[in-house]
Amino acid sequence: MDLLKILAIIGSGALLVVVIELIRRGRLKERYSLLWLLAGAVLLVLSSSRGFLEYVSRMVGIFYPPSFLFLIAFLFLLLITLHFSVVLSSLSERSKKLAQELALVREELENLKRSGLDSGK
């Protein structure tokens, strides 16, 4: 077993453990953890079997297998940040809607209070 392989296994294994632990403690919602879990699992599989890694690297025309590992990790990061941008957009749209609804409801409430006071006199 070469050092690179050991490091790769430790790295992807640690990623999985950290993600699972965060979910367990309720610090990470399942919805946002799926991509991380998938990334950890795929990287773990690729790094634990040298033969398999070499096989798939050759297949896509990459002659230095570790760089295939980097490619996969990079693609996952790209996917995860894109996912974040989508989530962020929907959150900002929601917070805008909430602010608008809150402002309108408050105006309506003030009107109600005022008309209630007037009729109470």
Partner: peptide, 13 residues
């Protein structure tokens, strides 16, 4: 009539 937005949304909002 006045509506108060709780924070600044920008002209569009």
């Amino acid at each position: 009539k006045v509506v108060d937005l709780p924070f600044n949304l920008g002209i569009g909002g």
